[in-house]
């Protein structure tokens, strides 16, 4: 999984031409989180700067609505 992410060179959102990241889509956000539910750095996911900002916002919104955890025990 981690290896797979490292290999990715292109931003996932650019490649799929996603303009706005939906915070309700928890499954999709999960792939940008570490096993401790922290947001993974751009280096690991290959996300571009623009989408990383949008992603961070979406993750925080999803956390507030209990769609993804703030942290795992």
């Amino acid at each position: 999984m981690a290896n797979n992410l490292l290999k990715q060179k292109q931003c996932y959102f650019c490649a799929n031409s996603i303009k706005e990241i939906d915070y309700k889509d928890a499954k999709n956000l999960q792939r940008f989180l570490s096993s401790y539910a922290k947001i993974l750095p751009r280096k690991k996911t290959g996300t571009c700067a623009k989408h990383q900002r949008k992603l961070a916002r979406a993750v925080k919104r999803a956390r507030h609505m209990a769609l993804i955890p703030y942290t795992t025990r």
Partner: peptide, 9 residues
């Protein structure tokens, strides 16, 4: 209605 879901916490 997105249905009944398990909350993350």
């Amino acid at each position: 209605n997105l249905g009944k879901k398990k909350l993350a916490f």
